[in-house]
Simulated assay, not measured.
Amino acid sequence: MSEPAQRLVPTADAERSPWFAYQYLVLRAVPRVEREEFVNVGVVLYSQDAGFLDAAVHVDASRLRALCADVDLDALGDGLETVRAVCRGEAVAGLDAAARPWRRFGWLEAPRSTVIQPSRPHGGLTRDPAAELTTLLDRLVR
């Protein structure tokens, strides 16, 4: 559905590029919270060192409908857009536009009993956070 919005410009010599620590969350669509069944629908990646916070999403409607035939895909899409807006630093969902990226990531990782739920945070190292976000989306969601 959407690709990452931000992109770092890689250096000419990738071997000399710095490594950036990052954390990521897998976003899960849980159409019937009481059943605890879910489908991965996105990834949020945060690297304080690189100054990067972004989300990428992909919704497989047929997989979701297999769990819940009447899942509200429009509401799910709205929720995922809110996640992307939080990453972009927009004033949404009770967060001030001036909220620092670490605070926005913390807000996104907080557990909720809603249709969109985050996984526990995981970490890694990368030279290119935007490319890593796409790799994680391909590996964990698509």
Rank of each mutant, 00 (worst) to 15 (best):
M1S: 14
M1Q: 11
M1R: 08
S2K: 15
S2E: 13
S2D: 10
P4M: 05
P4I: 13
A5L: 14
R7V: 10
P10L: 09
P10W: 07
T11F: 12
A14W: 14
A14R: 10
E15A: 15
W19R: 09
W19L: 15
W19F: 11
A21P: 00
Y22R: 03
Y22I: 01
Q23D: 12
Q23V: 06
Y24I: 02
L25Y: 07
L27F: 10
L27E: 01
R28W: 08
R28V: 01
V30P: 01
V33R: 11
R35C: 02
R35K: 11
E36V: 00
E36A: 13
F38N: 08
F38L: 02
F38D: 07
F38V: 00
N40D: 08
G42P: 12
V44S: 02
Y46V: 05
Y46N: 05
S47E: 06
S47V: 06
S47C: 13
A50L: 09
G51C: 13
F52A: 04
L53R: 11
D54T: 02
A55E: 03
A55S: 13
A56K: 07
A56W: 07
V57P: 00
H58Y: 15
H58G: 11
V59K: 12
D60H: 14
D60Y: 06
R63S: 11
L64V: 02
R65F: 04
R65C: 04
A66Q: 03
L67T: 00
C68G: 01
V71Q: 03
D72T: 00
D72S: 01
D74A: 08
A75R: 11
L76D: 06
D78P: 00
D78C: 04
G79N: 04
G79F: 02
G79I: 03
L80C: 01
L80D: 05
E81T: 14
E81P: 00
T82R: 09
A85S: 15
A85G: 01
V86D: 07
R88Q: 15
R88V: 03
G89D: 13
E90R: 15
A91P: 06
A91S: 10
A91Q: 08
G94P: 01
D96C: 05
A97G: 05
A97P: 07
A97W: 05
A98T: 14
P101N: 13
R103V: 14
F105G: 05
W107V: 03
L108H: 03
P111S: 08
P111H: 07
S113T: 11
T114I: 01
V115N: 00
V115I: 08
V115S: 00
Q117C: 04
Q117H: 04
P118V: 02
S119A: 01
P121N: 04
P121K: 12
H122C: 06
H122E: 12
G124T: 11
L125A: 02
T126W: 01
T126I: 08
R127A: 11
R127K: 15
P129I: 10
E132C: 13
L133H: 10
L133S: 08
L133M: 09
L137W: 05
D138R: 12
D138L: 07
V141G: 10
V141L: 10
V141E: 06
R142D: 07
